[in-house]
Amino acid sequence: MIFDALKLSLFVVCCSTAIVGIAGVAFSYLLAKSSFRGKDLLDAFLTMPLVLPPTVTGYYLIVLLGRRGILGSYIYELTGWSFAFTWEGAVVAAVVVSLPLMIKASRASIESVNTDYETASYTLGKGKLETFLRITLPLARRGIFAGLVLAFARALGEFGATLMIAGNIPGKTQTMPLAIYEAVASGDDHRAQVLAVVLTAVSIAAIYLTNKISRTAFYG
């Protein structure tokens, strides 16, 4: 039981961190480097899960992706499958709640890259994409790593939104935080303790890692 929850948690969190890494960097670039109508709105929309109670975020996910949801009903009609009560649903919940942390960290670091470096790259004939990949991204890497670690930790601890969209099915959607809740509720103190210690260890490691990254000398 403990291993099931641990394995599922790590799997879900790795999937979500990979998605958050790519989507987070793309959104950060968009928010940091371009101006378009509705930019502030997009920013607010993406940041919202940071302040919204996770159960409310989860409720909106059901409204959007549930079997009878706005998008979910189409998906269900086409495929006979829905995000509700699946590990994929748990991944979606983890992505939505951890994306804002990634965006906050990576956007700030992308914005802090001296624009002269990018301009220099343009004068040397390089386009925007190449300049981003070869100049901006490597120079912003500390903030991007820090964002990834924070997103990983936040996703690992995700409870409310996951419970709403993915439920609490042991071996299928029961991640570690849900398993702790169930262990306590059913009076299995030993299991709760072991799970809590494991999660605490991972969280401390995450904090240690972010601090180390932000203190490391930039080059060399």
Binding site: N114, D116, Y117, T119, A120, S121, I135, L139, F218
Partner: peptide
């Protein structure tokens, strides 16, 4: 550039 803007 004035401060060279060498890629660090």
């Amino acid at each position: 550039f004035q401060d060279y803007a060498l890629f660090p």
